[in-house]
């Protein structure tokens, strides 16, 4: 297992490297640069700024310097737009925020989704089942970005229970709406996947055998059905985890949390090359790590898999 993990991590290095190179060239292909402005800068001034950020160098040299800076100093360079901050600052400031509400959303959608799905499968064809199924479909079909305005109108304007946005160091009042908005659509899909997987497991031979042996339903479900049932769920949860951490643009936008999603889209639009690359690398590494974690979880769930 350890050898496997190390091998996978080693394999991730070329992946990340390729990601950096691809993003780097893609970024430089985009029309407009970080210093394109309404009134063009005087040529001498522009030349000076570009020299300061190394943009006057040939592209391969820029890429080389960038990579060596990361490897040797763990330095992702200064932001082109925000003069008093560098990329490390921006990530250090925004990532904990994204991580906090992303992780909470992940917990909420996993716990609620799996419980609903299991309950629906056990009480197959009961009202609980129908409720879970319709809730799942509705949550999945609603585009998640309409949750933002609905939540703010309800909880902030009409009920006056929660602040309409901001972060404020992550106090619980500020966390509730982002977490609800982000987890809703996943609750839907996790419920559906869990339910169908549980149904399939309950109908399989080894469960019937267990039941025939006279074991109680509870023991059958907890001891025997749980692990195999979770396998498809886990393979779905991996990408969900990456998504709740990275795709939080609309949460940042509606709830002004100051998370990294907004910083990423903002940097793409303002051509803040350094921030764009830094965040891309972070997300790439995160994806690789989560994929690895998913595979390891799989090995734990399925005794047939050996690495």
């Amino acid at each position: 297992m350890l050898a496997y993990t190390l091998r996978r991590l080693g394999g991730a290095i070329p992946t990340i490297l390729l990601l950096i190179i691809a993003s780097f060239f893609l970024m430089h292909m985009a029309p407009g640069g970080p210093f394109t402005s309404e009134r063009p800068l005087p040529p001498q001034v522009l030349a000076n700024i570009e020299a300061r950020y190394g943009l006057d160098q040939p592209l391969w040299k820029q890429l080389w310097d960038y990579l060596t800076n990361i490897l040797l100093h763990f330095d992702f360079g200064p932001s082109f737009k925000f003069k008093d901050r560098d990329v490390n600052d921006i990530i250090a400031q925004g990532f904990p925020i994204s991580l906090t509400y992303g992780f909470l959303s992940f917990l909420v959608c996993t716990i609620v989704g799996v419980s609903l799905g299991v309950a629906a499968a056990i009480k197959h064809n009961s009202w609980l089942d129908y409720f879970a199924v319709s809730l799942g479909i509705a949550a999945q079909a609603l585009p998640n970005f309409i949750m933002g305005p609905i939540l703010i109108l309800t909880f902030t304007l009409w009920l006056g229970w929660l602040p309409g946005g901001g972060w404020n160091g992550g106090q619980w009042q500020y966390l509730i709406m982002p977490v609800i908005a982000l987890s809703t659509s996943y609750i839907g899909s996790i419920t559906r996947i869990t339910r169908s997987s549980m149904l399939e497991t309950l109908n399989s031979n080894f469960i019937r055998t267990a039941k025939a042996k006279g074991l109680s339903t509870r023991t059958v479900i907890w001891r025997h059905a749980m692990k195999p049932m979770l396998m498809p769920v886990v393979s779905y949860l991996g990408p969900v985890f990456v998504y709740v951490l990275t795709g939080s643009v609309f949460v940042d936008l509606y709830f002004s949390t100051g998370g990294l999603g907004q910083a990423y889209v903002g940097s793409a639009l303002s051509r803040d090359y350094a921030v764009l690359l830094g965040v891309t690398i972070l997300y790439g590494m995160l994806t690789v790590l989560v994929n690895l974690a998913t595979d390891l979880a799989y090995a734990w769930l399925d005794p047939k898999i050996r690495y």
Partner: peptide, 21 residues
């Protein structure tokens, strides 16, 4: 394919559309 799968797809979408118009 494995490498491409490791790239967050939402971000690729944004990048592509920002860049190519």
């Amino acid at each position: 394919v494995d490498i491409l799968l490791a790239i967050p797809m939402t971000l690729v979408l944004i990048l592509l559309l920002v860049i190519a118009g």
